[in-house]
């Protein structure tokens, strides 16, 4: 089956639920209750957004969010915002370390959080030079977009691990 790509204005979206949209294509085809999901949630968040139906079957793929008309883009982004919670760490106040288990006491853009990771290899990944991704023991995700832009105290704490 050919993959259907949604480009510039091939389709319109209506928000149906928290994370679901109804999609109507210009050629008349329509789908109800599709869930936009990132195909590259780590490396490319605004391109290749897949639209899955209730059975998890892909119905279409948005190639690039930025080329969509403003209103359509916003609908999809709101859905993604509800689906993906990856708080950005803005400050690391303190840490506690015993053996390989580390807890960071941090501030994020979603409020303060205690981030518990079991091992560095599993819990902390540095992507590129400055971007850090954290996955805690419960599989929650956090991100530091640019380690160098944190305050000195936070950087000092993180320097132990990155």
């Amino acid at each position: 089956m050919e993959r259907i790509f949604i480009d510039k204005d091939t389709a319109t979206f209506t928000r149906k639920d928290l994370t679901l949209v109804d999609v109507v294509f210009r050629d008349g085809r329509s789908f109800e209750g599709l869930e936009p999901r990132r195909l590259f949630p780590v490396s490319d968040r605004s391109r290749y957004i897949t639209l899955l139906d209730a059975n998890g079957v892909e119905q279409a793929v948005i190639r690039d969010l930025s080329v969509l008309p403003e209103a359509e883009r916003q609908i999809i982004e709101e859905c993604l915002q509800e689906y993906y919670l990856v708080p950005k760490i803005t400050r690391v106040m303190d840490y506690r370390e015993r053996f390989d288990g580390i807890t960071f006491f941090a501030d994020t853009d979603h409020g303060p959080a205690n981030i518990e990771i079991r091992t560095l290899t599993q819990g902390l990944k540095v992507i590129g030079e400055f971007r850090a991704l954290i996955r805690d023991v419960n599989d929650n995700r956090y991100e530091i977009p640019d380690v160098t832009r944190l305050d000195k105290h936070s950087r000092q704490i993180l320097a132990r691990y990155i």
Binding site: D17, L18, T19, P41, E82, Y83, Y84, L85, V86, P87, D139, N140, R141
Partner: peptide, 20 residues
């Protein structure tokens, strides 16, 4: 379950209006 967060949802009577 979403990505890093999850929601308790009630389907509503007769699959009517969903409640987050």
């Amino acid at each position: 379950r979403y990505y890093g967060n999850a929601l308790l949802v009630f389907a509503g009577q007769d699959e009517g209006k969903k409640t987050h």
